[in-house]
């Protein structure tokens, strides 16, 4: 089980808003799949998953503001 955490999207930008989940809970994820789209003030970023597994739980919803390092989802 692993947590997918929000990486720093641009230097000194310490939070971002969840725009869109490309997968839903229970979906099979392959390493490198872009799993969620996040938006900063400046641009939108797709965040890839670093491992393969099942998207067990989505921890933050579309519209939520998330801090860098905060867990977005649990992959199992």
């Amino acid at each position: 089980m692993a947590e997918l955490k929000l990486p720093e999207l641009a230097e000194g930008v310490n939070e971002a808003v969840v725009s869109f989940w490309h997968f839903k809970e229970g979906d099979v994820i392959k390493e490198g799949d872009e799993i969620v789209e996040m938006a900063t003030d400046k641009a939108a970023f797709n965040v890839p998953c670093k491992i393969s597994g099942i998207l067990r739980k989505i921890l933050v919803q579309e519209g939520d503001t998330v801090k860098v390092g905060q867990a977005l989802a649990i992959i199992e």
């Binding site: 808003v17 872009e34 938006a39 003030d41 641009a43 970023f45 965040v47 890839p48 670093k50 579309e62």
Partner: peptide
Amino acid sequence: MKRFPYWLKQSVKD
């Protein structure tokens, strides 16, 4: 909520 057009998306390549 902040929205960007589809052509303004980048990918995290960590």
